[in-house]
Simulated scan of single mutants.
Amino acid sequence: MFTLQISYPVREYEAFKKVFDTDPAGRAASGARSVRLYRDTEEQNSVAVLLDFDTNDAAAAFLEKLRTQVWDNPEVIGQLMTAAPTARILEEVAREGQGAG
């Protein structure tokens, strides 16, 4: 399992969530098996998204799609975010506890 971890510094969570829910990059069509959205408990406009993919290639392709089709849009960075998002792809190497497989 490969997880694309993205950190979004957003201007206003509600506005970000509205756009996120429209799925402008096509998460499901790109092979995302699950999507988890988190907010920092102290900084409510700091958002983390974790998307799970079967392969590193699928995660990398989706990240590239985000960079070229969503994040490069000046309206996205200028209106929704205070800075560019950061992202990395993580490979799951162990799991313990509830839901471990």
Rank of each mutant, 00 (worst) to 15 (best):
residue 25 A to M: 09
residue 25 A to W: 08
residue 26 G to M: 05
residue 26 G to I: 04
residue 27 R to F: 15
residue 29 A to C: 06
residue 31 G to E: 07
residue 31 G to I: 02
residue 31 G to T: 03
residue 32 A to C: 07
residue 33 R to E: 14
residue 33 R to P: 05
residue 33 R to F: 03
residue 33 R to I: 13
residue 34 S to G: 05
residue 34 S to V: 01
residue 35 V to N: 05
residue 36 R to W: 06
residue 36 R to S: 11
residue 37 L to Y: 00
residue 38 Y to W: 13
residue 39 R to L: 03
residue 40 D to Q: 05
residue 40 D to Y: 03
residue 40 D to H: 12
residue 41 T to Y: 11
residue 41 T to L: 15
residue 41 T to I: 14
residue 41 T to Q: 12
residue 42 E to C: 09
residue 42 E to H: 13
residue 44 Q to A: 15
residue 44 Q to V: 13
residue 44 Q to F: 12
residue 45 N to F: 03
residue 45 N to R: 07
residue 45 N to Q: 08
residue 46 S to W: 09
residue 46 S to L: 14
residue 47 V to D: 08
residue 48 A to F: 14
residue 48 A to K: 14
residue 49 V to F: 06
residue 49 V to R: 09
residue 49 V to W: 03
residue 49 V to N: 06
residue 50 L to W: 14
residue 50 L to F: 15
residue 52 D to H: 08
residue 52 D to N: 11
residue 53 F to R: 01
residue 53 F to N: 00
residue 53 F to E: 02
residue 54 D to I: 04
residue 55 T to A: 08
residue 55 T to M: 07
residue 55 T to E: 09
residue 56 N to Q: 15
residue 56 N to L: 15
residue 58 A to E: 11
residue 59 A to V: 06
residue 59 A to S: 06
residue 60 A to W: 07
residue 60 A to V: 12
residue 60 A to Q: 15
residue 61 A to V: 08
residue 61 A to S: 12
residue 62 F to R: 01
residue 62 F to C: 03
residue 62 F to S: 02
residue 63 L to C: 06
residue 64 E to M: 08
residue 64 E to S: 12
residue 65 K to L: 03
residue 68 T to D: 10
residue 70 V to Y: 02
residue 70 V to T: 01
residue 72 D to T: 13
residue 72 D to P: 00
residue 72 D to A: 15
residue 73 N to D: 13
residue 73 N to Y: 00
residue 73 N to S: 04
residue 74 P to G: 00
residue 74 P to C: 02
residue 74 P to K: 01
residue 75 E to A: 11
residue 75 E to R: 08
residue 75 E to N: 15
residue 75 E to Q: 14
residue 75 E to L: 10
residue 76 V to E: 00
residue 76 V to P: 01
residue 76 V to C: 02
residue 76 V to Q: 02
residue 76 V to L: 00
residue 77 I to D: 05
residue 77 I to E: 02
residue 77 I to A: 05
residue 77 I to W: 00
residue 77 I to P: 01
residue 78 G to S: 00
residue 78 G to C: 02
residue 78 G to A: 00
residue 78 G to M: 00
residue 79 Q to H: 07
residue 79 Q to I: 00
residue 80 L to I: 02
residue 80 L to Q: 05
residue 80 L to G: 03
residue 81 M to D: 03
residue 81 M to Q: 07
residue 81 M to Y: 08
residue 82 T to I: 03
residue 82 T to H: 01
residue 83 A to P: 09
residue 83 A to V: 07
residue 83 A to L: 06
residue 83 A to E: 15
residue 84 A to Q: 15
residue 85 P to C: 08
residue 86 T to H: 10
residue 86 T to N: 09
residue 86 T to Q: 13
residue 86 T to V: 12
residue 87 A to P: 05
residue 87 A to R: 05
residue 88 R to C: 10
residue 89 I to G: 06
residue 89 I to P: 02
residue 89 I to R: 06
residue 90 L to A: 11
residue 90 L to S: 05
residue 90 L to P: 01
residue 91 E to Q: 14
residue 91 E to H: 10
residue 92 E to C: 11
residue 92 E to A: 13
residue 93 V to W: 06
residue 93 V to Q: 05
residue 94 A to W: 07
residue 94 A to R: 11
residue 95 R to V: 10
